[in-house]
Every structure is written in C-alpha cells, then in structure tokens.
C-alpha cells in the first residue's frame, strides 16, 4: 500500500513536469518502488567508520514502527478500528514524536558534517510543524467534543468537517508537507545544499527501510487528514454496503495526495531564515481565524 502510494506520487509529479515517470517495471511501472526496495535489500551493507550501528538500526526500526503504530488506530476498513480506545487521538502526538526522535537518532548515529547540519535543520523544522499540525488536528476534535477517532468518523456521516474548517485543512496540508520533508520544506535533506542531509551516510538495507518508513509516514499522514477532515470512508450508501467504506477511503486519500503533489509541484524551497515566517506567521493567523469561526458557530448552535 505504502509503495503503491509512492508510485502514484512519482507518477503525478512526473506528469506535472511533463515526464512519464516510472514506466518499465510492471503495468506502467507500478512495480518500480517494489523493485527499488528489493534492489536496495540485495546490496552489500557498507559499514562506515565511526557509525553507531546499534543506534542506527534501532532508530530505523523505531522510525518504521512509529508510522505503523499510528496506522493501527486509524479506521481504515470499517468505521471503528480494531485497536481503538476511547481517547485514541492522543496516540497521534506520540507517533509524531517517535518518528522525529528516530530521525534525529539516525542522523546523529554518524556525525559527519552533512548529517549534523541536516539533523539540526530537522529538529528546527519539527519544532515548527508539530505545533501547527497538532492544533489543526485538535480543532475538529474540539468541534465534536470527543477524543476518539471512531467518533469523529461517525460525526461526519452527515457532512465532512472540511466544510466547516477549510482553513484548518489548508494549514494541515502545508504542515504535513513539512512533516514529510517534501518540497518546499525539504530542507533537512536539500540535495543541492547538504547532499542527503541526515541520511547522507546510509545505504543498502538501511536506506531501503528509511524509504519504506518515509512512504509509511506519507500514508499515515494522508490517512490521518482523510479521517479527520474528510470523514474517513463515509459516503453515500456506506450503511447499506459496508464494503464501499475502504474504497471511499482510498479514493479520498488519493485526492488528498493529489493536492499534496500539486502543492509540491509549485513549490520553491524556502530559505532557512524564512521558515518561521512561512509556517508560523501565516499558519497561526489562519488557525486563529479558524478557531474564532468555530467558536462562533458553536455558540450560535449551528453545529
């Protein structure tokens, strides 16, 4: 699933740039990410002098697992996920923190100049996007007076929260880009500046799992936004035909992905000094406006 999403993303980006994208492996290159993954697994592992192997391996496992952990609590197939409990929204900040810690540890397990600069940028970026992303995600839960994922899906059976909180949705998309380190916020591994940033010294199996972790992170982020703002797999006729739920879910995820890709396509990488301005100055103002609207609507009793 994660790797297919990578293929969709690559294909869409390529089309924006007038290219064809992956083409040869499988139907229209759909197997290309799988091929890449398998190829990296087969490579000989290179041990770099001064690398803390245990820390690196541990943090990579943590990185992959953090997104998997998050995905467990998202209602992907039916409106209640298997592991859900009453206040399962608090898992979300936990997974974000875990993946950021894992990335930092990965960067610091070898201390070359590229990884040090890259990790420094990563930590700064984390500090900026996390508050934004959490506030945007918290607002819908405030609207519904709940802390549970399945409740928020059920609430949205009438209309998605997107209609009430469009500004929050936009900020969430942008903050998600920052979390996924995609353009314009790909500073931690800006290849034109600091080679591959925090993952410069990784290759082979470790790199394969880093890539997998990134893809999972993308799926997790997109799924989260779909659940919170678009009402998960809710849609016409899901009561009569429950098998429609996952289909709607995937379609909605692809739409969110398309929006992300379009934002990426028109992105110019921000300079490090403009980072706070971009994310905070504009994002927080938008969120405050959004919160105002929300409270007024709540007071009036419309929702």
């Amino acid at each position: 699933m994660a790797l297919i999403f990578e293929w969709i993303e690559r294909k869409l980006i390529a089309r924006i740039q007038w290219r064809v994208g992956p083409l040869l492996t499988g139907f229209k290159g759909v197997l290309q990410p799988f091929y890449d993954f398998a190829k990296l697994l087969l490579k000989e592992e290179v041990e770099i002098e001064g690398m803390n192997t245990y820390l690196a391996d541990f943090s990579i496992i943590l990185y992959v697992l953090s997104s998997v952990l998050g995905l467990l609590f998202i209602p992907l197939f039916v409106s209640t996920s298997l592991y859900s409990f009453n206040e399962d929204f608090i898992v979300v900040p936990l997974t974000f923190a875990l993946s950021a810690v894992a990335q930092t540890l990965m960067g610091l397990s070898i201390q070359s100049s590229f990884t040090v600069v890259g990790t420094g940028r990563l930590v700064v970026q984390y500090a900026m996007y996390e508050s934004l992303l959490l506030i945007t995600l918290a607002l819908p839960f405030m609207q519904c007076n709940t802390l549970s994922m399945s409740d928020i899906v059920k609430v949205q059976s009438r209309y998605p929260i997107l209609l009430v909180q469009p500004l929050g949705f936009v900020v969430a998309l942008i903050a998600l880009l920052a979390k996924l380190e995609k353009p314009p916020f790909d500073l931690p591994h800006a290849k034109q500046e600091i080679a591959a940033g925090w993952m410069t010294e990784y290759c082979c199996r470790r790199l394969a799992f880093i890539q997998l972790g990134k893809d999972l992170e993308m799926v997790y982020g997109v799924a989260l936004i779909t659940t919170v703002f678009l009402g998960g797999g809710q849609g016409p006729m899901t009561y009569d035909f429950p098998w429609l739920y996952p289909i709607y879910f995937i379609v909605k995820m692809i739409i969110v992905l398309l929006l992300l890709v379009i934002l990426q396509g028109m992105a110019v990488r921000v300079r490090e000094v403009f980072m706070p301005q971009r994310l905070w100055e504009r994002g927080i103002i938008m969120l405050v406006i959004q919160a105002f609207i929300l409270f007024i609507l709540k007071d009036v009793g419309l929702i």
């Binding site: 390529a14 089309r15 924006i16 007038w18 290219r19 064809v20 379009i262 396509g265």
Partner: peptide, 21 residues
Amino acid sequence: RLTMLKEVLKSLFSKPSTEPL
C-alpha cells in the same frame, strides 16, 4: 501563485513530452 497553479494543472493534464523508448 494562481498563475503558477494554472500552469501546474495544465501540465498535469497534458501529454508528457518524453520521447518513447
């Protein structure tokens, strides 16, 4: 930004200009 968005969308829905292999 809107002009750029238009350009992006235009590119997204037009045929790729890569020459076939």
